[in-house]
Each structure stands twice: as structure tokens, then as C-alpha cells.
Design a protein around this nucleic acid. Structure first.
Length: 591
RNA sequence: GGCCCUGUGGUGUAGCGGUCUAACAUGCCGCCCUGUCACGGCGGAGAUCGUCGGUUCAAAUCCGAUCAGGGUCGCCA
């Protein structure tokens, strides 16, 4: 291209005054004053103003008249301090400018469909279709850069701690538990399929059996489930496994790792150790197994206090084994009636059949349900909730699971509406002591809450065959600001216990052998005690970058219908390809 | 699979039964302009209102279906 780049746009400083430099980049803006042309030249580093003047170089000036937005330029020019009255304090390079001596237009460009700048207000589908333009925007480049820095810091950290990064296969075996698999047909094995990994779980355990002792991997995983703002069908995990450790070892190691990342990439200190909550306590106090602890407004159990009232709704729930809980929305007794009605619909989403409320006003308690309660019960409610004049109490009565879901979500919603969440706060915590199994009503059997390779807690082993529902697991989740960013467990490492767990989730020994026989066999060849964890890299970066969607930290994400609007994946394939793969679809090809 | 929201020039919005042969901003094109930095001035082009169907004398506007996007419940060991 003739001109060799000597500097990056935003790295030009007053120190460069008088120097001749060569810059390459894109035209961010052009301001043509007729006899003088200003171009804001942009590269990955930022912007600098280039001036084309007939008095400096007529040929360059003539060429600059034809420049348009997003043209690609190479410019040779002289750095010059700006006169005081022309300094732009809003620009990093606002004190200097570059007088263009030679201009090469490396490429022209169509007018982009949206501005290449931060904080644009454009339909996301347009951004995704023109992702290459979207990724030119500084904030997107910053996100990708942060992502790079974080994974770099991860590798540095783990390397320093004696971990080895090892790749595991992408073409793996479909397993019965867990999410829906992405399947890949095998051409050389007609009628058989690989599955893309939901996680490298079994491989990393096998690596422990292999004696690798400390493994990590930054690895793509695939789950064919519906998408969300924080869920893509393909996503990246930081996967970790260690031998000869117990739970405390891995929690400590991961806390150190996370604080290293934040220090290294954002210069943020995280105070350790992180807070811990048992699953039970998290559910009781926050109605969630991933509580946002940046604010209070905890759930208060009023089941005992309300027992024996004349309020039939509560009584029916309580005698049926349900519970009555409330949150205190401080200082919001003046909530508009319309908003209250809306909240009823809000909690209905989570299965609550109703929402009761009490407003503590200067004239006393205003509430449609207060009349059903004796003065004693009302006092009990007031004391338990610390309700004061100006406060709003919101009640849900139902089965514990519904109360937790409805009131837990309502707590978050009210915090957002009352602006109680400090966006700069980083609230880390561990949630632990999860139940090993939960009962799946649909399948009419127990399923592993974490996964079936998780070890039950030692004191609960005896219930494996008698009462699986009461067993707690050696599992732990790391939560940041109400989002699960990582989860793991101490694993089973004996055939005996693994077989019992498979049995508890309804796998016959034939099925267990067909699906996991190699693992069971491997356990018999000297398996060290081991455990690990996996972090959702996309979510972690999303939170670090303060974005509300992981799509903003993934270079080429998919839409809610799992499509890539830029490349148009997925797409139909040639009949010949299907034939080679021994596949017939039941969908008629569109004409 | 359910629920909610959205779909009007390139982009973002307004219009929500007749005055819409669709408005505004920005962008785009042309001309002018030597100190701008969201440069400025003048002029111009550009959408039949996601698609299909229905109601009506009349539909961007109402109804239905459908497609696309977003959020969410289920789902995500």
C-alpha cells in the first residue's frame, strides 16, 4: 500500500510536535469548509484530527475532497500543536492535529446503515446484520478487548498455579442427562451421531484420573435450549478441575483467581473471602439460589405470625403446608393503585395466585386484608417486618417454591423501580450445600440438581438408597450481582457411589454402563479425589463490561431463534450432503 | 410450547379510521464555504407504512393470520 504506518491515531501527543508520521484508519467524520478539510481519522486506538489544506499540499487536498465516511486512508502528515482557540478538550488528541502531506485512499466505502459511534439507538437486528460495522464502534471494541485481557489474565493465573490447558473433543458422545444436545451425524458410521459438548465434564474428570492434577480450559460449549439475554446456544466456559483437594481448596483458589482478574483487567479490588450462603438460606432470605445482595429487602416469613387469622386465603395456604412471606418496600406506601394492580400480574408470571399489600400511612395501615387480622397479628407483622410509617408490605402466600419465585423476583423488580441497586457495586458470594437431587414431577423421578457426577456430602451418603431427596451435594455456585457466573462440585471418584447415584436418578445399570461405562471402569484404575468448577465467560465479561446482554461481549452472537443474521446460519444443505450423512428430513423443502 | 412488547424513507421517531399524493430529525446527493470538531448555509432525492387476508364508502391507522426481532415463563444436569 506504499505508506507504512508509524503510529496509532490516539497515541499522538504534544511530544510528537513537528514530527512526520504515517497513520492508517477509517474516516469517522469529514468536515469540508471549502478551502479547508478536516477529517477525524479513526483506528482501533481512537481518533485524531487530520487537516487537509491547499497551502500544505494541493494534491492531498484535492483527494480529500472525495473522501466519505468510512473510507480507508493512509495519511502521511506532520503533527502540529493546535492554537489555543482551536483546542478540543473533549478529545484525547484534542491539543494536536496532523497536517496531511500525502493521502492514499486505500478503499472507498458505502454509507454505513448506522453511525460508527457509541450509544447508538439502532435495532439490534441491523447491528447484527452488519456486525463488521457494529464491531467498529469503540464500545464494542472495548468489550472484545476486555474479553481478550480477561482470558489472557486467566491463562497467566492458572499457568502460575501449575494448571495445564488441555483441549477436549468437540465431537463427543450424547448423554441422557441435562440439556438438549446439538447432534452431528457421522458419515462413516451410518445412523450414528456425535454430540457437541454441553461441557467437558467427563473428559476433565478422566484427565484427573490420568494424573494431570490441575487442568483448565477456555472452551466452547453447546446447549440446544431456548435463548435469553444471558444465554446463547454456544457459549464459552472457563473449565477447571483439580485433584487432591477438598471444597475449601477450590473455593479459595477461585476467589483468588477472580480477584486477580478484576485487579489485572479493571484495577478493581475485591475483598476476600467472599460471603457464603447455604442454598436453604439463600432461598429463605432472597427467594433465589442466585441472590443479588447489593441491596436488602429480604423475604420475611410470616407464616407463624399470620397463623389463625380470619383471612381465608392465608389460612388455606398455611394449613395446606404452604407459607406466607412478605417484603418491605421501604418508603413506598404511596405506591399508585395502578402500579399495585400491575404487580399482581407481575407475580402471576411466577405462579402466584395473588398479591396482598399493606401501606403504613400516617392514618394507619391501609390494606384490603388488614380487617381480617387481629391487633395481635398486625403487631406481629409490623414487628417482624420492621414496618414504619411510609412503608409498603407485599405478601405472597403459596407453596414454598412459588413464594420464593414470585417474591424473589418481586424483590428484584421493586429494587429496580426504587433504584436501590448500586450499579458500581460488586456483590460476590458463594451459594453452597445444594440439594443433590430434585424431584422431577414430569419424569416422575429424581434428577441431579447439579449433575450426577457431583459427590453427595459425606454425612448424607447413607440416604442414597433410602431418601435421596434429603441429600445435600458438595456443590457450589459463585454469584455476582444476582447472576450465576460459575458452578462446580467435588466429584464422585468411586464406582460404588457413582453407581448408586445413577440408580437414584432412575438409570438402570445397563443404561449406566451403556452411557458411562468407560467412566465407571476408569474409576477402578486409581482415581484421585477431585473437584472443579466452570465459569460462564460470556456472563462474567458481560458483568465486567456492565452490559445487559451477552450479545454485546460475543463477536458474532445469535438471535433468539438461534440464527446468525449476518451469515444466515442455519441454512438448508444440498440433498447430496444429506445423502452422504444418511439423513432424511421430515420437513419438506420450501420451494 | 405459553405470555408480553416491537415492526412507517438508509437510521431513529411522529402519525393511530378520511385533510397521509405520509411529517420530523439525522444520514445521503449537489452547490457554496480556510478553523471546524454532532461545522455552517442553500437546494434536492429518498418510505405505499414487515407480509397476507378481512372489516369499512374509506386502513399506516381496526381485526385475524403469518414472518422477523426483543423480553420472559417453561426449558437451561
Amino acid at each position: 500500500m506504499g505508506l507504512k504506518r508509524t503510529d496509532s491515531c490516539s497515541n499522538i501527543t504534544k511530544e510528537h510536535d513537528g514530527k512526520e508520521i504515517v497513520l492508517c484508519g477509517w474516516v469517522s467524520r469529514r468536515r469540508d469548509h471549502g478551502g479547508l478539510i478536516f477529517v477525524d481519522l479513526r483506528d482501533r486506538s481512537g481518533l485524531v484530527q487530520v487537516v487537509f489544506s491547499p497551502e500544505v499540499n494541493m494534491e492531498a487536498f484535492r483527494k480529500a475532497e472525495h473522501i466519505r465516511t468510512e473510507f480507508v486512508l493512509a495519511v502521511r502528515g506532520t503533527v502540529s500543536l493546535r492554537k489555543a482557540e482551536t483546542i478540543n478538550p473533549n478529545m484525547k488528541t484534542g491539543e494536536i492535529e496532523v497536517f496531511g502531506v500525502e493521502l492514499r485512499i486505500l478503499n472507498s466505502a458505502n454509507t454505513p446503515p448506522f453511525y460508527i459511534q457509541d450509544n447508538i439507538d439502532v435495532d439490534e437486528i441491523v447491528r447484527l446484520k452488519y456486525r463488521y460495522l457494529d464491531l467498529r464502534r469503540p464500545e464494542m471494541q472495548r468489550n472484545l478487548l476486555l474479553r481478550h485481557q480477561v482470558t489472557k489474565a486467566m491463562r497467566d493465573f492458572f499457568d502460575g498455579e501449575g494448571f495445564v490447558e488441555i483441549e477436549t473433543p468437540m465431537l463427543t458422545k450424547s448423554t441422557p442427562e441435562g440439556a438438549r444436545d446439538y447432534l452431528v451425524p457421522s458419515r462413516v458410521n451410518p445412523g450414528k451421531f456425535y454430540a457437541l459438548p454441553q461441557s467437558p465434564q467427563i473428559f476433565k474428570q478422566i484427565l484427573m484420573i490420568s494424573g494431570m492434577e490441575r487442568y483448565f480450559q477456555i472452551v466452547r460449549c453447546f446447549r440446544d435450549e431456548d435463548l435469553r439475554a444471558d444465554r446463547q446456544p454456544e457459549f464459552t466456559q472457563l473449565d477447571v478441575e483439580m485433584s487432591f483437594i477438598d471444597r475449601e481448596d477450590i473455593l479459595a483458589m477461585m476467589e483468588t483467581m477472580i480477584s486477580y482478574l478484576f485487579k489485572k483487567t479493571m484495577n478493581t479490588e475485591i475483598s476476600l473471602p467472599m460471603q457464603r450462603l447455604s442454598y436453604r438460606e439463600a432461598m429463605d432470605r432472597y427467594g433465589s439460589d442466585k441472590p443479588d445482595t447489593r441491596f436488602g429487602m429480604e423475604l420475611i416469613d410470616l407464616s407463624a405470625v399470620c397463623k389463625g387469622s380470619d383471612f381465608k386465603v392465608f389460612e388455606t395456604v398455611l394449613t395446606g403446608g404452604g407459607q406466607v412471606k412478605a417484603i418491605n418496600v421501604k418508603g413506598y406506601a404511596a405506591i399508585p393503585r395502578r402500579e399495585l394492580d400491575g404487580l399482581v400480574n407481575y407475580v402471576a408470571t411466577y405462579g402466584a395466585k395473588g398479591l396482598a399489600w399493606m401501606c403504613y400511612t400516617a392514618e394507619g395501615i391501609k390494606s384490603p386484608i388488614a380487617k381480617f387480622f387481629s391487633a395481635d397479628i398486625l403487631d406481629g407483622i409490623t414487628n417482624a417486618t420492621n414496618a414504619e410509617e411510609g412503608d409498603l408490605l407485599l405478601f405472597v402466600a403459596d407453596k414454598p417454591a412459588v413464594v420464593a419465585a414470585a417474591l424473589g423476583q418481586l424483590r428484584l423488580e421493586m429494587a429496580r423501580r426504587r433504584d436501590l441497586i448500586d450499579p458500581d457495586k460488586l456483590a460476590f458470594l458463594w451459594v453452597m450445600d445444594f440439594p443433590m437431587f430434585e424431584y422431577d414431577e414430569e419424569a416422575k423421578r429424581y434428577v441431579a440438581m447439579h449433575h450426577p457426577f457431583t459427590s453427595p456430602q459425606d454425612e448424607d451418603m447413607e440416604y442414597l438408597e433410602t431418601d435421596p431427596g434429603r441429600i445435600k451435594a458438595k456443590a457450589y455456585d459463585m454469584i455476582l450481582n444476582g447472576t450465576e457466573i460459575g458452578g462446580g462440585s467435588i466429584r464422585i471418584y468411586t464406582r460404588d457411589i457413582q453407581e448408586k447415584v445413577f440408580k437414584a436418578i432412575g438409570l438402570t445399570s445397563e443404561e449406566a454402563n451403556a452411557k458411562f461405562g468407560f467412566l465407571l471402569e476408569a474409576f477402578e484404575y486409581g482415581t484421585p479425589p477431585h473437584g472443579g468448577i466452570a465459569f460462564g465467560l460470556d456472563r462474567l465479561i458481560m458483568l465486567m463490561a456492565k452490559r445487559s446482554s451477552i450479545r454485546d461481549v460475543i463477536a458474532f452472537p445469535k438471535t433468539q431463534s438461534a440464527a446468525d443474521v449476518m451469515s444466515q446460519a442455519p441454512s438448508e444443505v444440498a440433498p447430496r450432503q444429506l445423502k452422504e450423512l444418511h439423513i432424511k428430513t421430515s420437513v419438506l423443502a420450501k420451494s
